[in-house]
Amino acid sequence: MNKKIIEATGLTRHFRVLERREGLSGAFKDLFSRNYRTVKAVDGVSFSVDRGEILGLIGPNGAGKSTTIKLLTGVLKPTAGGVTVDGFVPFSDRRRYVANIGVVLGQRSQLWWNLPVIESFKVLKEIYRVPDAVYERNLKLFNDLVDLKRHYHTPVRKLSLGQKSICDIAASFLHDPALIFLDEPTIGLDVSVKKNVRKIIRTLNRELGTTIIITTHDTGDIGNLCPRLILIDKGTIVYDGPTARFNKAFGSFRTLHLDMSDMGEDERGALEGRLAGCFPCREKISVREEGDGWVTLTLNQDEVPLLDVLNHCLKTCRVKDVKIEDISLEEVIIKSYEGALA
C-alpha cells in the first residue's frame, strides 16, 4: 500500500463571482452587462499526507481552507492541478471515493433533523453497507469514550450544539473510512466538549489508524492534536511543517493590547520610535493603531521581556486598560512572509 494517502500538485480552484452594482439602477444595469471578478480561493497548492497522519489546516477567514477540503472530498472540481486520495481522483470518482471517507462540517449536520439519532446511524449503516460487526464495534468504541447511548432516542433537533457535534463525528466514522475530513469541528463548542472532541479524534487515529485532516481557528486543536500543520493564506501555502517548529518560531511572541484613548494621536504615533530607542532588538517591536484608541504591540519575548515593555508603557503613557494575548494568525502570516519560518 502506498504510504502517501493524499498527493496534491498545483491544486487550484478559482470562482467567478458576479459583482453586483448597488441600488435599483445598478440592479437594472446588471440585467444587461455583468461584471465578473475572479476569486483565487485555492491557488496552486502542493502537499502530501501520509497514511495515519493528523494534519491541521489553519489560516485566517477566507484563506481557502474549506475550499481545499471541498476539493479533497470530491465536491468541487479543480480549475487546474490535481489531487489523488487513496488512489482515487476525488471529483471524477466521487461516488466510489466517498464510500471511503468521512466528512464532518462544523456548521452543518448530516443527521436527520427530526428523527432520533439512532435512525440516522441506521440509514448510514445501510448507505455505506456497514457489516453488523463493524457497526457494533464502532458504536462501542464511541460509547466507551463518550456516553452516546443516552442520545440515541433523542430527535436531533433537541440536541445541544455540542451533543450534535459529537453525534456527527460518530456518524462520519461508522463505515471505517480511511480518512476523515473535519472542517471546524470545534466551532462554538465549550472547553469540555472541545476536549472530548479532541479525545475522540486522537483515539480514532490511534485505534483505527484513520488519517485525519482538520481545519480550525483554535490553536488549541492544533497544539493538542496535530504534529504537523499547513498554514494557508489567500489560497497559497505559507507554511507546511512540524507544529513544534511553528511553535518555536512563534511561541514566544505576545501581543499586547493597550487602551490609549486618552492620548492624542501624535503622542501615540511617537510610541514606536520611543520603544525602538529603549529596547534595541533585532526585530523591532511592531506598533499598530486599531483606530479606536487601542494600540497593539507585537514583541518577541526571547528578545525583550514583556513586563519591561509593559512597565515602560504604563510609566510614559496614559493607559486605561491592558490585554495580553498570544500572537494572532494575521501577525504570524505577516512574519512568515518576512521570513520568520525560513
Partner: peptide
C-alpha cells in the same frame, strides 16, 4: 445554501 454538500458526501447518485 450549500447544504447540497451533505448529499454529495454520500456514495450515492
Amino acid at each position: 445554501r450549500g447544504d447540497i454538500v451533505l448529499r454529495l458526501h454520500l456514495p450515492l447518485d
